[in-house]
C-alpha cells in the first residue's frame, strides 16, 4: 500500500500469542520453543473495507451520492452515463470516475458532455478497489452536493467483492445478454440495490425473457429494485432519472 494515504492498519489488528497450556491439535509446536502461533483472525478484505468506509465518510460529509455502476462489458454503462449527464445537466452536479483496463476512451466520452471525469486504468486488474477510488477522488475533488458515478471495469465477477464506499450499487444488464445471467453471476446481483435492464428497444429481435430475468434476479435479491430502459429510444429513462433524483435528495439534506 502507498505511504501517502495512511493505509497501514497496524493499530487495528488484534493478535495474541497462545500460551503453551492451550491445546493446538493442528499444530505440533510444543517441542519447538522458537515457533509461535499467531492468532490473526483478520478479514482478508479488511484493508479494502477500511478504505471504503473512509471514502463513504468523505462522501457523506460532502453530501455526495456515490454510485458504483457494475456490469459485463458492452451492457451500455457509458452510453447510459452520457445520456444521463446530458439530460440532467441543469438538475444535478455530476462527477465521474471511469474504470477500464486500458485507454481513456470512456473518459473522453464523458468529458465531451462537459462533466468532470477521472480515468483509472487498472492495467491487468479486473476491478476497481477502494484504494484506487480514494486517489481518484483526491485528484478530482468532487464538489459538495453532487452525484459521483463510479463506472467499474466491465466484469460481473470480480467487482462484486470490492466495496468502494458507494451508497448504491447499480448492476446493468442488457437484453442482448442471457436471461439467466443473474443465476450465473449471483454475487453481483446479491450485492446490488438497483438493477437496470438496458437496450429494451431490442426486445423484439432477441430471445430475452424479461420477466424471467426479473424473477431470477429477485430470487437472489428480493429487495433489488429493477428499472427497464433504453438509451436509444428513451423509454424508461424518466423512471431512472426519478430514482436518481430521489436518492440525490436523500443524500443532500437541505
Amino acid at each position: 500500500m502507498c505511504a501517502t494515504c495512511g493505509c497501514d492498519t497496524g493499530a487495528t489488528i488484534t493478535m495474541h500469542e497462545h500460551g503453551h497450556q492451550h491445546d493446538h491439535s493442528d499444530h505440533h509446536l510444543h517441542e519447538h520453543s522458537h515457533k509461535k502461533v499467531v492468532d490473526v483472525e483478520q478479514d482478508i478484505l479488511h484493508e479494502n473495507n477500511l478504505l471504503a468506509e473512509r471514502n463513504r465518510g468523505y462522501f457523506d460529509a460532502k453530501n455526495i451520492l456515490a454510485l458504483n455502476l457494475v456490469s459485463s462489458p458492452g451492457s451500455g454503462k457509458t452510453s447510459l452515463l452520457e445520456k444521463t449527464l446530458t439530460d440532467l445537466k441543469g438538475d444535478l452536479n455530476f462527477a465521474v470516475i471511469e474504470g477500464d483496463q486500458q485507454t481513456t476512451n470512456d473518459a473522453d466520452r464523458i468529458h465531451a458532455t462537459g462533466t468532470k471525469v477521472v480515468q483509472i486504468n487498472t492495467g491487468k486488474g479486473c476491478h476497481l478497489d477502494a484504494h484506487m477510488v480514494l486517489h481518484a477522488v483526491q485528484g478530482m475533488k468532487p464538489v459538495q452536493d453532487s452525484v459521483l458515478f463510479i463506472e467499474n471495469v466491465g466484469n460481473l465477477v470480480c467487482p462484486a467483492m470490492f466495496d468502494l464506499g458507494e451508497k448504491e450499487r447499480v448492476v446493468i444488464i442488457s437484453v442482448t445478454e442471457g436471461d439467466d445471467k443473474p443465476l450465473k453471476y449471483p454475487d453481483m446481483f446479491h450485492s446490488s440495490t438497483l438493477c437496470i435492464i438496458n437496450k429494451t428497444d431490442l426486445l423484439p429481435y432477441v430471445p430475452f425473457d424479461i420477466e424471467k430475468v426479473k424473477a431470477n434476479a429477485k430470487k437472489i435479491n428480493p429487495a433489488l429494485e429493477i428499472i427497464e430502459l433504453s438509451c436509444t429510444s428513451g423509454e424508461g429513462l424518466t423512471t431512472w432519472y426519478n430514482w436518481l433524483k430521489l436518492k440525490a435528495v436523500a443524500a443532500m439534506p437541505a
Partner: peptide, 27 residues
C-alpha cells in the same frame, strides 16, 4: 445464492455463514 428456502420455498434469506474470507492464524 439463488436457492429457495427448503422449508417454505421463500427467497428472503439472510446468509449467516459461507462468506468468510479470513486469515485465521499463522505459525
Amino acid at each position: 445464492l439463488y436457492d429457495a428456502c427448503p422449508f417454505c420455498g421463500g427467497y428472503l434469506i439472510g446468509i449467516t455463514a459461507g462468506k468468510e474470507l479470513r486469515v485465521k492464524s499463522l505459525v
